[in-house]
Nucleic acid binder design. Sequence first.
DNA 1: GATTCGTGGAC
DNA 2: TGTCCAAGAAT
Length: 355
Amino acid sequence: MDASAETIPEKLLGWYDAHHRSLPWRSPPGALPPDPYRVWLSEVMLQQTTTAAVAPYFAKFLARWPTVAALAAADEGDVKAAWAGLGYYARARNLIACAKAVAARGGDFPDSEAELRKLPGLGAYTAAAVAAIAFGERAAVVDANVERVITRLNAIAIPLPQARTQILGKVDAITPADRPGDFAQAMMDLGATVCTPRAPRCLLCPLSDHCAGRSLGPEKFPVKLAKAAKPQRSGQAFWIEQDDQVWLTRRANTGMLGGMRALPDDGWSARGDGDAQAPLDGDWTPAGSVRHGFTHFDLDLQLMVYSGADCSRLDPQQGEWWALGRLDEAGLPTLFAKAARLVTAGAATGRTIGD
DNA sequence: GATTCGTGGAC
DNA sequence: TGTCCAAGAAT
């Protein structure tokens, strides 16, 4: 459906040269690739996360841990705390494990997609992206942007995730041996700025002449299966304060908010409500609640403040006293940061703050 | 293949 | 207000 001789990758790379996004972890089109450490760090942070959310975290990590060796040698609690607020905390645990694995092999990342894929936290997308962007390997890079562009370009009506194999084949077929990293980033930029989920700007698209989906209604693609309704859960968190310090725990390494500092809680989860069991006997005063939306459930978390005087039964193995003056350095995930804000702001009115 | 993992911004 | 969704991975 296109009369010109220019191929899809040629058109896309030409568009990218003129319209690429400038991002802190990127090299300009055609320039030498960035340090693989930067590419890897940014790609892990960008998993299911917007560029705007990543930018400050990327700057902070790079300033504090300029090399993968520095990151591997860092205190794990410091790395997790620095990740707090970015979400999907398994990424932080995998980031640490991956840094140690790379440091153990001399500090150089493997330079092939197949070897990168073996590292913790690098799945199909990230391994291909690092191989293409940092090492110039002709790897097929497929993220949600690429899925959208490809399903529209080819009018693929098979719903995700079934269509993934077909999409991968289509991407592989148009990925060039020259500038594969720029090509991958061009596909993602096109998806992010032109071939957007809503109101795509087809008039600005360099591939519109090739697009089978345009005349059918590009917003119909990709087809997705309906998602299940989010359950509503409720639970409690417990605020125990003494001598301008608050009692913090560390969550188990698996499951929600795994490995992160936290307030004691009553066992709420995606599967059920908490049991309202406090970690200390004595008087507890409700201080309001916070609503927080997770990916697969919504939580109403009620804050209970300890008004007793005897904290001697708290197990030092289960937590630590943390100075209120530096609570923002504790690395609390957003849910608990909100809860702490509710108490420290003196919100004794019992009101609910939303998310 | 289906679930379980956060968070904040856009509309 | 609710809904969607973003450079996905691990199990």
